[in-house]
Design a protein around this nucleic acid. Structure first.
Lengths: 337, 337
DNA sequence: CTGAAAGCGCTAACAG
DNA sequence: CTGTTAGCGCTTTCAG
């Protein structure tokens, strides 16, 4: 075997020695910078040595030397995203791969502000894409200082000084209600969750209320917890009413599933007695009877939008501080409402 | 302002200059190695300078110099995990944080073997925890050579030479069937999904079949795709039979949801006419009527098990190559079966 | 406590 | 095309 005796990781010097070339040649072969020409035969010898040694260039050393990195850092969101998370990561990774960039997800989902920024900055990533809620001015400053070339935010509100992908949750509520109105409903209800999803639910409610007011329709606000009993109580309440709503925007798909389940448990039909619209377009929307009408966000927009911004950055264009982008939802119409 | 003029990231030398101390002192303050004593006043001056400068030590430089890192790398699983993923990551991150370790998730979920190993090894992580299916002997060798101190695998089968957390999916099937038998069922069905979940479904089926055989009960295998129409066809088929099964193990919770929905659509009651058991214990199991009985894996076991292994490794104990750990499921009994 | 100095693995000039 | 060399930011040793 040509392996070095030591237990230490092989270095480019080891590769050079085994291949019988200089370290620069190894570097040229591995990075093929513009204007470095290596004969096919030499290149092959080097690659063979790389394989033999199981050599993997050290990213830390490379980053230290070259002053930049191919890492885009995505701190794991505090907000539970469920299926959307995997979906977004896939799209983003794919978009980045086309530019030889790597997505790295930071596992700590709780740190925020300057503390979080320091942890992220320590890795010296090329770019950071974080929830707006976890960025503070101080944090952004730390990232800038650490040489992070691009900082993107995403979330419910724009972050000052950082380009933000804004998820228009008011529009989600508005679209749900407008859809129901277009189906002839005039008296509706809107579920507003408490707990971790309260903020999101509140925004969706606000959009829904505005849309109902604009159309002169009635919309009842119903606050519920993430528990089955709350939902059942709501349905029982409707059963008491002489003139209950004919449609409900459930706030999200889990609540839609719950409410449909509860309605049928109480002998109501969906959408006959009560139309139901969810939000997020989770996979199960397509799998149940009736299939669930849902208001979906385009995760694609977010993934490719961020990647596009990176592209222009890479192309040397100046970094724009204020090009926010609003991600709009659309209604996926199925049978439930 | 005490900021340096340049656009370059502040270094420990900048901190030293601002604080009026030497670079070694800065290092001592930030890392407090055993046997480094710094006066409280000096320490405070240093920390003040750190804050003023927005200084974050460079992880690459630190890693290069010290030869080790505080990063545990978790390549994003190829297998869709849905809710389980966030859950596991949370538990693992928390367990690692207690040892001052950081979880980093590699976004590329498709690379495997030596290619994947090279990408992971480039980051020079302390440890790697990967799906067994993405590790090959060559890949493990590359990681070892690169100085990765611990390699863990997880998945459906043990990986030779690497400690593996094995998810016993046969037992999932077996437990579901044994539970149904304990409820008095003697004629049952098992849904076996095609598509990306086929491998998983096959294992669950095998366990289910064995359990049924052992008990002398009848178990019908039903292959289905991840689409609503397949499920409806299955139910219609049962309607034709004079002596249909009385219970079904749906293979996972999505299928359980679908089949319950389809059964009720066809006028059957659950669990009266047909008991249904799912698997994975997704959150919606608790949110529908009837609530869904499901076979759950302990993600806790996996997260803390891996973290424990890391602990003993950190404590300097020798790295054991063959201490596999089997993660067993348990039945969460609710109303559907 | 400080200062000087070595060196981790790599890239990019630059000189052959 | 190849070899030499400086130095990225940091930790750690050693002698004050």
């Amino acid at each position: 075997m040509t392996l070095p005796e030591s237990g230490k990781p092989p270095t480019s010097a080891d590769v050079a020695r085994v291949a019988g070339v200089s370290r620069s040649t190894v570097s040229y072969v591995l990075n093929s910078p513009p204007g470095a020409r290596v004969s096919a035969e030499t290149r092959e010898r080097v690659l063979k040595a790389v394989r033999e040694l199981g050599y993997a260039p050290s990213a830390p050393a490379r980053s230290l030397r070259s002053g930049n990195s191919d890492v885009v850092l995505f701190p794991l969101p505090l907000q539970p995203m469920g299926q959307l998370l995997e979906q977004f990561i896939d799209e983003f990774t794919e978009a980045l791969r086309r530019q030889d960039l790597n997505l790295l997800i930071h596992g700590d989902r709780y740190a925020r502000g300057v503390d979080a920024a320091r942890a992220w900055a320590a890795l010296r990533p090329l770019a950071v894409m974080a929830e707006a809620a976890r960025l503070t001015d101080g944090g952004v400053e730390v990232l800038r200082r650490a040489g992070v070339r691009a900082i993107f935010a995403w979330g419910r509100e724009e972050h000052p000084g950082v380009p933000t992908a804004i998820f228009d949750n008011r529009d989600t509520g508005a679209q749900a209600i407008r859809h129901l109105i277009s189906r002839g409903h005039r008296k509706m209800a809107c579920l507003v969750p408490s707990g971790p999803l309260a903020g999101l639910g509140q925004e969706r409610w606000e959009g829904a209320r505005t849309a109902a007011e604009d159309a002169g329709c009635s919309l009842e606000r119903v606050d519920v917890g993430y528990i089955r009993e709350d939902i059942l109580a709501v349905v029982r309440g409707w059963q008491q009413q002489t003139d209950p709503p004919t449609a409900v925007f459930a706030g999200n798909d889990d609540f839609a599933l719950m409410i449909i389940s509860a309605l049928r448990e109480c002998g109501w039909t969906v959408p006959g007695d009560m139309a139901v619209v969810g939000a997020d377009d989770l996979p199960f929307c397509d799998l149940v009877w009736p299939r669930l009408t849902s208001v979906a966000m385009h995760t694609r927009t977010m993934g490719s939008g961020a990647a596009d911004a990176l592209t222009s950055l890479m192309a040397g264009k100046p970094y724009k501080h204020r090009n926010h982008m609003v991600v709009h939802p659309r209604v996926v119409v199925r049978e439930s409402g």
